[in-house]
Design a protein around this nucleic acid. Sequence first.
DNA 1: TGTCTCATTTTTTTT
DNA 2: AAATGAGACA
Length: 771
Amino acid sequence: MQFIDELNESQRAAVSYNDGPLLVIAGAGSGKTRVLTYKIAYLLTQGIPAGHILALTFTNKAAREMKQRIIHLVGEEVGRYLWMGTFHSICARILRAEAEHVGFTRDFTIYDQADQKSLVKKIVKELQLDDKIYKSNMVLARISSAKANFIDPEAYAQSDSYAKIDRLERLYKMASVYSEYNRRLRAANAMDFDDLLMYTVLLLNNNPEVRQRYQQRFWHVLVDEYQDTNHTQYLIVKLLAEPQNHICVVGDDAQSIYSFRGATIENILTFQNGYTGAKLFKLERNYRSTQNIVNAANSLIHKNKGQIYKEVYSEKEVGERLYLTGYSSDREESSAIAKQIMSMHKLNHRDYEQIAILYRTNAQSRNLEEEMRKLGIPYRIYGGMSFYQRKEIRDAIAYFRLAANSSDDEALERIVNVPKRGIGDTTVTRVREAALRENVPMLRVMQSPQVYAAEIAAATQKKLQAFAEKIGLFAEKMQEMNAFEFAQLVLNQSGMMADAAIDTTAEGIDRKGNLEELLSGIRQYVEDRTQQGEDTSITDFVHEVSLLTDQDENSDDSVARITMMTVHSAKGLEFPVVFIAGLEENLFPSTYCQTESELEEERRLLYVAITRAEQECYLTYASSRWRNGQLSFSNPSRFLKDIDRQYIQQLSAPSKEPSPWNDPPRTWYGGELLSDPTERYIPHANAPKTPITPTTVSSRNLKATTGLKPRTPQQAIATEWNTGDRIEHKVFGKGTILRVYRENDNDKIEIEFDTKGTKTLLLAYAKLDRI
DNA sequence: TGTCTCATTTTTTTT
DNA sequence: AAATGAGACA
């Protein structure tokens, strides 16, 4: 085991200790993954077969990379059969094998957020509850929280603590909604993400024989990012590790940032109580960042109260201080970051791959993206709309899902009229009602509407049957074809491909391109699996796709790009240069986090962000920012003051913005600055001095005349307005587009529109898509 | 049934 | 800003 020499003393101690439960508290950048990797490699060289080691990670990508590294250390044959993946994917694997024990079949579907949401909406409507109170997001959050705490509908109905919060929110019928929701999932042979965890616990709890089988299989259980596990995950680990308790968990309480999805820091804080004799190791030396960065992060995190004491230190060079810059607007912030990156690249020969921009919310990526594009900086955005979330891709996959699982009603409703088959809402509702009444899948009702007494016109019945037959055909073909052949068949026979091909608008061409991309992705998948000697049917593909995250998507790595992502998704990553944008009150920390413990979590989030940086860390904030179509003003984040001043260097910005230290927080009145507001607005450089002769264009013919079309009809919002001899600022309002005329070759065009009520003519700038 | 228009709501982070 | 929902109309 030469490789063990590559570790420092405390790392080595953690790796070679195997006499009982083990808790490794690993500071940021202290080689946590390294310890885990080497520990597994160590176990393998001790003669433990890979098939008897279970390692749970936070993302599939982390699992893949770790496995690669282990194989590199011990060889392919030794490491190949490791059980390694996220809780969700490992649970899905176990549940598919044992599906009948929990009352599902092995082909169960995994409902994603959109499926869940649509189901909740239907249930709320059916139970005749007010959808203003029972908002789908709220309902789902409640259900998810219950499942994260291993509380089933019965327990929920009994629970005082849940009832109390539900009363506050006037969600008196929440328990019934939860119960019906679960019933419907089961009827559809489907699970949501939380079910994967919950049913695994149920499986192991209720079936001693199964439990023993898995306990005997997993001689060693290792968990990464333990600070972000929830109670149900705690139970899974406990059930699998018993009775030998050869368990090793690794984590950092200072980086716990997922409480919103049920993670509880208690798991790591009380580990030693739950596992008697558990040994604790601390890794405190940071190998990633310069001293200044580590010290700055430390000074911030020490403002939190509850934490396991540790002193992370770096022995690298002192390095540069963190740079702080304030800007007057989000636009200015974005463009300054872009310029900065450009000059780093040009002047310092900094590779784009070494740079990341982190932010609190996905919405912030839009501005940044635009500015990067302007300067031609290649970028990669994680999060937001991923390939598999696009409508046409989801539709295609819904066909696969329905073929694999004929009870998958959400998939059916998604595609029953895609492409248009003349099966409208009314018909679908009738089918759904009949299916509900007769307790059968909707597809069954469509096969024989008369049997289930669905009141449907004969002509429509024909359409339904034709659809059902098509799905039946797919289900048959699915068995005999490989994934690629099958996907091709479905896209052609369903009419989706033809439908996209007919459409010659930009969106249509896009759609077709995406479908083709999906096909070529599936072809690749089949090739890979053939090489590995694995099953090439569509079933496995569908199952895997539902557990993919945007980090897993294969993007073109041949070009060096900068990375843009939320702080949450940056967990576990590192970059030589990190920008953290939008350090403002009400954004970071978020408006929705105001209790003490929530604020501490936000502070940990910033801690995570800063500790991603190896050499340079830039912090920025803006005094004004567009949010939800409204301009809002804010003060610098309170967290800036939590960082020890000696580690920060304030840079000057184009406009003088208030400093977090020297200037008192400003107050705003009615969303507007009390002092002279015009200072905050930079006049549009191209604003014409005199009105242009308008060409009258109706909104309908807009695209024909100008080659431009508004993304939504009423999108125009005036930011400034030209009266002939002066430019007035800050005129906001929506109106109907009356006339359009193009300005130079710019995507921004001027629109004349009248505002609600007063019929004022305004010259406004609107963002338009080129077609 | 499908399309278009208008109005209201959303309002963080994700496996 | 963008998504969702309701209502009008062909």
